[in-house]
Amino acid sequence: MSAQPKTPEPNVVNGINVDDLFALIEGVRREPAKGKTNWRVATTWQGQARSRAEIESYEIGGEKVPRRFSIDIDEPRELGGSNRFANPQEHLIAALNACMTVGYVAQCAVRGISLESLAIETDGEIDLRGFLGVDPAVPRGYEKLNYTVRIKGSGTKAQFAEIHEAVMATSPNFYNMARPVALKPALIVE
């Protein structure tokens, strides 16, 4: 009987398959079109101030990949909602934090740094006079967001500072929130 050759175990750090991540990076480096992604969310009104965002798929490298998720969104009672779900601002901040979290985990993983804990706390102020149209001179959204990253693991302070800079330089949602994004609206009245 011949022994079966052992398949090498994947290199997994912080739950990230680093071998797969490096393969993705190299594949995109060789063929930039493989790195093109498209994200789509359809949101429908559910009554009162509630809405449901639904995701059916995304595209990577020109290929459609099925994904089925629903995200329910509401407002606090004080803002006309039923307070059943997080509101759009909380989802926006959660999306920023989640995107940066992935960045910290991946940046640590590719450096072989094991994480013990990671938390990001973000806050910002919105003056309702702008949103409610009370004063057109008041901004309708955030002027700034403050966030604090608490990270603990096998890295040094210098390594974590380098990772922090790398996350700010590469996180898609940090990028999206740190500069204007062109919005191209279309209205269809049915």
Score class of each variant (00 low, 15 high):
1 M>N: 01
1 M>Y: 06
1 M>R: 10
4 Q>P: 04
9 E>S: 06
9 E>T: 08
13 V>R: 00
13 V>L: 01
14 N>Y: 01
16 I>Q: 05
17 N>F: 00
21 L>I: 03
22 F>M: 07
25 I>T: 12
25 I>S: 15
25 I>Q: 15
27 G>Y: 07
28 V>S: 03
29 R>F: 00
30 R>C: 12
32 P>G: 02
33 A>T: 01
34 K>D: 06
35 G>H: 10
36 K>S: 14
36 K>E: 13
37 T>Y: 07
39 W>M: 06
41 V>Y: 04
41 V>R: 05
41 V>M: 07
42 A>T: 10
42 A>P: 03
42 A>W: 01
43 T>V: 10
43 T>S: 10
44 T>L: 11
46 Q>E: 10
47 G>R: 14
47 G>K: 14
49 A>E: 08
54 E>P: 12
58 Y>W: 08
58 Y>L: 06
58 Y>E: 09
63 E>C: 14
65 V>W: 05
66 P>W: 14
69 F>A: 03
79 L>P: 02
79 L>Y: 12
82 S>T: 13
86 A>S: 12
87 N>C: 07
89 Q>R: 10
90 E>F: 08
90 E>G: 09
92 L>W: 09
94 A>Q: 13
94 A>W: 02
95 A>L: 05
96 L>S: 09
97 N>F: 12
97 N>E: 15
97 N>Y: 12
98 A>F: 15
98 A>Y: 14
99 C>H: 09
99 C>Y: 06
102 V>W: 00
102 V>N: 13
102 V>D: 15
106 A>E: 13
106 A>Q: 09
107 Q>R: 04
107 Q>N: 13
110 V>M: 03
111 R>N: 01
112 G>T: 01
112 G>M: 01
114 S>R: 02
115 L>Q: 02
116 E>A: 03
117 S>Q: 15
118 L>A: 01
120 I>R: 03
122 T>N: 09
125 E>C: 12
126 I>H: 06
128 L>I: 15
132 L>Y: 03
135 D>L: 11
136 P>H: 08
136 P>K: 07
137 A>Y: 05
138 V>Q: 02
139 P>M: 12
140 R>Q: 13
141 G>S: 12
142 Y>G: 10
143 E>L: 14
143 E>V: 15
145 L>K: 06
146 N>C: 10
147 Y>N: 08
147 Y>C: 09
147 Y>V: 11
148 T>W: 09
151 I>S: 01
152 K>I: 02
153 G>S: 08
153 G>F: 00
155 G>M: 00
156 T>E: 04
157 K>S: 11
159 Q>D: 07
159 Q>V: 06
160 F>V: 01
160 F>M: 05
165 E>C: 00
166 A>V: 09
169 A>E: 07
169 A>S: 14
173 N>Y: 10
178 A>P: 02
180 P>A: 11
182 A>F: 10
182 A>M: 07
184 K>H: 14
185 P>T: 04
185 P>H: 08
186 A>R: 06
190 E>R: 10
